[in-house]
Amino acid sequence: MRESRLWFWHILSAIVIVFLLGAHMGTMHMNTILNSLGLGSADPVDSVEVFRRSASPVFLVAYIVLLGSALFHGLYGLRSMLFELSLSKSVEKTIGGLCAFAGFALFGYGTYVAIVVYRMHGVQP
């Protein structure tokens, strides 16, 4: 069943997101507390820090996995909500197509950015 498969991915991507986005939110927004415990960086959006992370292969993979999971999870959620609005079959098909297109386009763009920045090998402080 197609809908079953989509929903399984919705659940599996949720589990991936909890870990990766949890780590992302932790380093970004609990930076002061984590830093005082000797973890992470005091200023995670500082450009040197950002480009240093972007040049790491581990971060590259994590970015792309998180990008894909979050896009799928978010757009499937949006599609779910729109499918509950008593729309006609053709409108539903269009929504499904648009969500898929937006997902692939954003994934392509995000991956492109991640790879370009990865190949910059960081910046001078």
């Binding site: 950002v50 480009f51 950015v113 370009v116 920045v117």
Partner: peptide
């Protein structure tokens, strides 16, 4: 956020 962080390019 995808577009804002895309500024790194």
């Amino acid at each position: 956020h995808i577009f804002v962080t895309g500024m790194r390019v």
